[in-house]
Computed example of a mutant assay.
Amino acid sequence: MKKLTSLAGVVAAVAALALPLSAQAHRAWLAPTSTVLSGTEAWVGFDAGMSNGVFIADHAAMNLAGLTIVAPDGSTAAPQNAMTGKYRSTFDLHLTQAGTYRIANVSGGVVVSYKQGGETKRWRGAEAAMAAAIPADATDVVATRSNSRTETFVTLGEPSTTALTPTGQGLELVPVTHPNDLAAGEAATFKLVRDGQPAADLDVTIARGGTRYRDNPEEMTVRTGADGSFTVTWPEPGMYWMNASVRTPASGEQLAYTAQYNGVLEVLP
């Protein structure tokens, strides 16, 4: 462990995040067919991919190995009819409880780059397994702890908040305004936390979907305050993509760190 942390302190952070993100240049999204539903039960479909334009399946399907669905009572729900194609992954969710569901694809761990015998090699896995996994004769070791979260929210009936409780891992959205109570022309407030602590002074990019037939993408950037909060006034109805990221260099015994958040929210008329 000492070998890894000391070398990590004098080299730059690894640029790549762990799966499911395939490349920093492409935007990861998890888009539902509906976000607000009524009745005693309902079905919602989801598309998940990475692309240059949000919600345009033209680059790569998302690896859903880290898919976690939190039901309104805090239990875990299971996706159904899952499929991975060339450009998008899909699945369905049967809503059987009243309230709000949090649907998230999450990955985390450590990414390590090193040289052995003149050859560059990489390893990805849990931080606890890192020291044993890197050969004793490895040189030029670069270790970065990473976390990525791509998520959306769906409500059946009245909104609830149990599923919105943060895990304390990575970069997370803590709603002040409920994520399924958004309307065009109205302001909504959220907070970003990093490992459970306020994520201050971060740029948050917000883009509206449907850009394929527009001359210019509709994007805006807001910045989090000291408590991690930020406010958005939605210009039009539609499906919106939200992104923020944070990177810190290695320091002492602390590994370099990178985290990314991608959220999908629907704004109603």
Score class of each variant (00 low, 15 high):
I134Q: 09
P179L: 10
P166R: 12
N147P: 01
T144R: 12
A188P: 09
L182W: 01
E151C: 10
E186L: 12
E151M: 13
G157K: 13
E151L: 13
A188K: 11
L171N: 04
A184I: 00
R145T: 05
T155Y: 04
N147Q: 15
A163E: 06
T162A: 12
A143Y: 13
G157T: 11
L171W: 06
L156K: 10
T167V: 02
L156G: 09
P175W: 11
G157H: 14
E158K: 06
T165M: 12
S148P: 02
T167I: 01
D137Y: 05
L182Y: 02
N147W: 09
T177L: 05
A136C: 02
G185F: 09
A136H: 06
V176F: 00
T139G: 13
T144L: 13
T162H: 05
T144S: 15
R149C: 00
S146N: 12
Q169D: 15
G170T: 14
T189N: 06
H178W: 09
L171M: 07
A187N: 10
K191W: 07
G170R: 15
V176R: 12
S160Q: 09
V141G: 01
T152Q: 11
T162G: 01
P135Q: 14
T150N: 11
P179A: 12
A183V: 01
D140P: 07
T177Q: 04
P175H: 13
L156I: 02
F190P: 01
T144P: 13
R145I: 00
A184W: 09
T177W: 09
T155I: 00
E172Q: 15
P159G: 09
A183K: 08
T165F: 05
A138P: 05
G170F: 15
A133P: 03
H178M: 07
V174N: 10
L173E: 11
V174H: 10
L171Q: 02
G185Y: 11
D137C: 06
D140H: 13
A138R: 08
G157L: 08
A133Y: 05
A133G: 03
R145P: 00
A138F: 00
G170N: 15
G170E: 14
H178E: 00
V154R: 04
T161A: 10
V176K: 11
H178D: 03
V174Y: 14
T155P: 00
H178Y: 06
Q169P: 01
D181T: 11
E158S: 05
H178N: 09
R149K: 14
A187V: 09
L164T: 08
F153M: 03
A187Q: 14
A133V: 06
E158P: 00
P166W: 15
T155R: 02
L173Q: 07
P175K: 14
S148D: 09
P159L: 09
T139F: 05
V141F: 02
A187K: 14
V174L: 12
E186T: 15
I134C: 04
A138N: 11
R145F: 07
I134L: 03
T167M: 07
F190E: 02
P135N: 14
S160D: 11
S148K: 04
G185W: 12
E172F: 03
A143R: 12
T144Y: 13
F190M: 07
